[in-house]
């Protein structure tokens, strides 16, 4: 670096903060929805998934950013996928060793982190043209924005669908069932994840008018 930039300059902070709200990968950039929805039936697997994505994304962003000047453009996709796949294999083996139950619940979706469009999209759009440190922050920020939506969706689906939060039967303890309340089984089924995300987008865009699309 010729002009010494402080490690946490305003520009870098912006990289970290913007994806969490204004350019959220899921609700604004439309990336990474694939794996986002299937794991959100319960809170616990979603949190594990969010952590896994943050780890994979930060490291692969840095690696690709270090290699960016040596990758021939024609085969860049294969190179990027190989880097991501190597990271995901690591995460998968770690999960199998230390959190076997969660890894069983996530099943093929750990593998699908490889094709999570967020990671690929950020590698293409950011890491290929930036230095490692901003790429690292960009990775963390985007993965955190992704994780945030994941956790919100999972919270509502678990609360309304099975009446628990992190496996703790919160509705039963508050005595809601004795008043005639019944769990909404529809929330556990796949389509409701889509509708929940739709509602999150609705809320976000009505608070932040500049995100509204023309049609």
């Amino acid at each position: 670096m010729s002009d010494k930039e402080p490690l946490f300059s305003p520009k870098n902070i912006k990289l970290l903060k913007e994806p969490i709200n204004k350019s959220n990968p899921i609700t604004v950039q439309v990336l990474g929805i694939c794996s986002a929805l299937a794991v959100t039936v319960k809170l616990e697997p979603s949190v594990v998934m969010a952590i896994a994505v943050i780890a994979v994304m930060a490291v692969s962003n840095v690696v690709i950013s270090l290699m960016r000047n040596y990758i021939p453009p024609r085969i860049r996709i294969i190179v990027q996928l190989t880097v991501i796949a190597a990271m995901v294999i690591l995460v998968d083996q770690i999960l199998k060793a230390y959190a076997y139950d969660v890894s069983k619940q996530l099943s093929v979706f750990v593998g699908l982190i490889i094709t999570n469009c967020i990671i690929m999209g950020r590698l293409e759009a950011f890491a290929m043209g930036n230095k490692p440190w901003p790429a690292f922050l960009d990775g963390i920020g985007n993965a955190a924005g992704y994780g945030l939506i994941l956790i919100i969706v999972a919270f509502f689906r678990e609360l309304l669908g099975s009446g628990t939060v992190w496996g703790y039967p919160i509705l039963e303890k508050t005595g809601l069932y004795s008043t005639g309340y019944v769990n909404n089984g529809l929330m556990i089924l796949p389509p409701m994840a889509l509708i929940t995300v739709g509602i999150i987008i609705w809320v976000q865009r009505s608070r932040n008018k500049e995100l509204i699309e023309s049609n």
Partner: peptide
């Protein structure tokens, strides 16, 4: 207005599902 584009697409996909 806030639902236009992405939001409504999600909800329609849910209904199709």
């Amino acid at each position: 207005a806030p639902l236009r584009g992405l939001g409504i697409t999600f909800i329609i996909t849910g209904l199709m599902g």
